Simulated assay, not measured.
Amino acid sequence: MEALFYSKMCDAAEKDLYAVLGASPSDSVQQLRHRYQQLALQYHPDRLKAQCSAEAESGVKKFLEADAAWRILSDHNKRRQYDIQRRAQELKQDWPVDTTVCLEEMSWDQDLCVYKYCCRCGGGFSVAEDEVQEEKHSRQQDYEKEKIEGGLHRSVIVCCDTCSLSLCVKKT
Rank of each mutant, 00 (worst) to 15 (best):
M1T: 10
M1C: 05
M1D: 07
E2D: 14
A3D: 11
L4G: 07
L4T: 12
Y6W: 13
S7C: 02
M9G: 01
M9Q: 06
D11K: 00
D11M: 01
A12D: 00
A13T: 01
A19S: 08
A19W: 05
V20M: 01
L21F: 05
L21V: 03
L21E: 01
L21W: 03
G22F: 05
A23C: 04
P25K: 02
S26I: 14
D27Q: 08
D27T: 03
S28A: 10
Q30Y: 07
H34Y: 10
L39M: 12
A40P: 00
A40V: 10
Y43K: 02
H44C: 11
H44V: 10
R47W: 14
L48I: 03
K49S: 11
K49Y: 09
K49V: 15
K49R: 15
Q51P: 00
Q51F: 15
C52I: 09
C52A: 12
S53L: 07
A56T: 07
E57L: 02
S58M: 07
G59P: 08
V60H: 11
K62M: 10
K62D: 05
E65H: 06
A68C: 10
A68I: 06
W70F: 15
R71K: 12
R71L: 12
S74L: 02
S74C: 12
S74K: 13
H76E: 15
R79Q: 03
Y82L: 04
D83H: 06
I84W: 03
I84A: 06
Q85D: 09
Q89A: 13
L91H: 10
K92H: 13
K92S: 13
K92C: 07
Q93V: 10
Q93I: 08
D94R: 00
W95D: 05
W95Y: 08
P96I: 03
V97D: 04
V97R: 04
D98C: 00
D98K: 00
D98W: 00
E105R: 06
M106T: 03
S107L: 13
D109M: 06
D109H: 09
D111N: 09
V114H: 11
K116G: 00
Y117F: 11
Y117G: 04
C118Q: 14
E129D: 11
D130G: 08
D130S: 15
D130K: 13
E131T: 14
E135Q: 08
K136W: 01
K136L: 05
H137D: 15
H137C: 04
S138M: 12
R139Q: 14
R139T: 12
Q140M: 14
Q140T: 08
D142Y: 07
E144M: 11
K145G: 09
K145W: 01
E146P: 00
I148Y: 08
E149Y: 07
L152H: 11
R154F: 13
R154Q: 04
R154M: 07
V158D: 03
V158A: 01
C159I: 00
C160M: 04
D161A: 04
T162S: 13
S166W: 05
S166D: 01
S166A: 14
L167M: 03
C168K: 11
V169R: 05
K170V: 15
T172D: 09
